[in-house]
Amino acid sequence: MHLLIVEDDQPLATMLVRDLDALGHQSAIVDNGRDAFARVSNDRFDGIVVDRMLIGNMDGVSVIRWLRDAKIETPIIMLTAYGARDEKIEGLDAGADDYLVKPVDAAELDARFRAILRRPTDSLNTGILRAGDIEINVHKHRLWRSGRPIEIQRMEFKLLTELVRNAGGVMTRPMLIEKVWGYDFEPRAKIVDSYVKRLRDTLHIDGLEDPIETVRGVGYMIRR
């Protein structure tokens, strides 16, 4: 893969490029948002790594928003220093496909990009995800079921997006907690079960089956 590393910590960026090179990737480094936008505008990258904290007037979240507003759909992984929930959520809402907490392991970064790239091509280019009779537009925060538009709350939408992205596969509660809420631990409250119930109510249409399957003792899945 040809990767762009947007990181102002030069030693970290250099080490990351070295480790990615050992895995067979070619990487370029910039340390600020404007240079990142210039490189992406002139070169083709398979993935972009953006640090949450950057020098200059643009932080990583602003860079991601800028890229997405410019209709650049290249997969983006955001790096965070502390793994704070609000930072993760802000980055994902801005358009990042995933996040990693520093220190960064190149092998995990490689694996996460490969996972993103395994998603259907139309979801990467247009933000459209489909499973069964469900269709969602990730970028425009819109949902349809059997062609009918449905209003949905933000956290329910994030939960549905993760389930649809992994349609046909089981998402465990810890996986959903990390992806949707940004926690790296399982809260005492049954937050996943509660939001799945809300999501089921949102998706309910008389005469149609519940599209969410409960895998007892494991988690949930959306049927393809």
Rank of each mutant, 00 (worst) to 15 (best):
R112L: 03
D193F: 00
L143Y: 04
N166G: 04
K140E: 15
R52M: 13
H204A: 14
E90A: 15
A70G: 09
A84Y: 11
R165H: 10
E73I: 06
I89A: 00
R173Q: 12
G147C: 00
T161G: 00
L159C: 08
R52F: 14
A84F: 11
A28T: 11
M155G: 00
I77W: 01
I89R: 09
L124S: 10
A36F: 01
T121G: 10
I150K: 06
R85V: 14
T214F: 06
V50I: 14
G56C: 04
F45D: 03
N125L: 15
D105T: 08
V50E: 09
R224Y: 12
R114A: 14
R173F: 05
S41M: 09
M221N: 03
V17S: 14
Y183I: 07
P149R: 09
R148H: 11
P75I: 07
E135S: 06
R112W: 01
L16E: 09
V215M: 07
K102R: 14
M1A: 08
D35G: 00
G127N: 03
G147S: 02
M175H: 12
A28P: 00
E87R: 02
L208Y: 11
Y82K: 15
I55R: 13
I76W: 02
M221L: 15
A96W: 04
N57P: 02
A28F: 09
L117N: 12
A70I: 05
L203Y: 00
F45P: 05
R216C: 00
R85M: 11
A84K: 13
G47H: 10
I5T: 07
M221T: 10
R65T: 12
L203C: 00
V138L: 12
Q153T: 12
T74D: 01
L100H: 05
S27Y: 02
M15E: 13
R44K: 13
R142N: 03
P120Q: 08
A131W: 01
T161L: 11
G47D: 08
S146V: 05
E87D: 15
K71N: 14
H141D: 01
G217M: 04
R112H: 04
N137M: 02
V30N: 05
W144K: 04
W66Q: 15
P103Y: 08
S123E: 14
D21M: 05
E178M: 10
F185R: 11
E178T: 12
E213L: 08
L3M: 13
G168H: 03
V218R: 15
I48V: 12
E213H: 05
S146K: 03
V49G: 07
E162H: 09
D97C: 10
F185Q: 10
I48K: 07
P211H: 07
I222A: 00
D59T: 06
P174G: 11
D184A: 11
V50S: 06
L129P: 00
